[in-house]
Simulated scan of single mutants.
Amino acid sequence: MWMIEQAKEHGVILKDDVIKDNNWNIVSSPIIHDKGANKIDPPTFSLVGDRDFSYGNGTSVKQAKAVVGGNDTAWARSQVSYYSTWCGPSESPAVGLVDMQKYNDWLVGQGINISYAPTSSTQRCE
């Protein structure tokens, strides 16, 4: 998984057998949580909840204005099926489910391979 490989590249020592035995190398629950204090469906990343996004060259923009790999916030939102009702803790509610096939197709185009389990189309908050 990409995050595991990133950690290893930065010197974090991980036990591959423990990761594999616990299936921590497989995305199995691609739920989006929103810690941004947004209360609009789908979230619009209001100024209250918008985070700073820093590029490698030292510049930064608000997350809603960020462009990564040629894709913007509208594109990123198109990868998520938003719940009509949010659920979970108010400080980090579940707001939607990532379309893993779309996300995987994009990652492959970026040269990144991940493993993911088939996800249910059932919206967990309804």
Results as ranks from 00 to 15, higher is better:
Ala64Val: 10
Lys65Ser: 08
Lys65Phe: 08
Ala66Pro: 03
Ala66Gly: 01
Ala66Trp: 00
Val67Met: 04
Val67Trp: 01
Val68Tyr: 05
Val68Met: 13
Val68Ala: 09
Gly69Arg: 15
Gly69Phe: 02
Gly70Val: 09
Gly70Asp: 08
Gly70Ala: 01
Gly70Glu: 03
Asn71Met: 10
Asp72Val: 07
Asp72Thr: 07
Asp72Gly: 10
Asp72Trp: 06
Asp72Ser: 02
Thr73Tyr: 13
Thr73Asp: 07
Ala74His: 00
Ala74Gln: 09
Ala74Pro: 00
Trp75Tyr: 15
Trp75Ala: 04
Trp75Cys: 01
Trp75Val: 01
Ala76Ile: 12
Ala76Asn: 06
Ala76Lys: 11
Ala76Gln: 05
Gln79Ala: 12
Gln79Thr: 15
Val80Gln: 02
Val80Gly: 03
Val80Lys: 03
Ser81Glu: 14
Ser81Ile: 04
Ser81Trp: 04
Tyr83Ser: 04
Ser84Asp: 14
Ser84Gln: 12
Thr85Val: 05
Trp86Arg: 15
Trp86Ile: 14
Trp86Phe: 10
Trp86Cys: 00
Cys87Pro: 06
Pro89Arg: 15
Ser90Arg: 03
Ser90Gly: 07
Ser90His: 05
Ser90Glu: 09
Glu91Cys: 05
Glu91Val: 12
Glu91Thr: 11
Ser92Lys: 15
Ser92Cys: 09
Ser92Leu: 14
Pro93Met: 09
Pro93His: 11
Pro93Phe: 06
Ala94Val: 09
Val95Asp: 07
Gly96Met: 13
Gly96Cys: 14
Val98Leu: 14
Asp99Ala: 04
Met100Gln: 07
Gln101Lys: 15
Gln101Met: 02
Asn104Thr: 15
Asn104Arg: 13
Asn104Gln: 15
Asp105Phe: 00
Asp105Pro: 04
Asp105Tyr: 00
Asp105Glu: 10
Trp106Ser: 09
Trp106Asn: 11
Leu107Pro: 03
Leu107Ile: 14
Leu107Ala: 13
Leu107Gly: 08
Leu107Trp: 08
Val108His: 07
Gly109Val: 11
Ile112Ser: 07
Ile112Glu: 08
Asn113Ile: 10
Asn113Glu: 13
Asn113Gln: 13
Ile114Cys: 03
Ser115Thr: 09
Ser115Asp: 10
Tyr116Arg: 03
Tyr116His: 07
Ala117Trp: 03
Pro118Gly: 07
Thr119Gln: 14
Thr119Cys: 06
Thr119Asn: 08
Ser120Glu: 15
Ser120Tyr: 09
Ser120His: 10
Ser120Arg: 09
Thr122Ile: 15
Thr122Glu: 12
Gln123Trp: 02
Arg124Val: 12
Arg124Gly: 13
Arg124Lys: 08
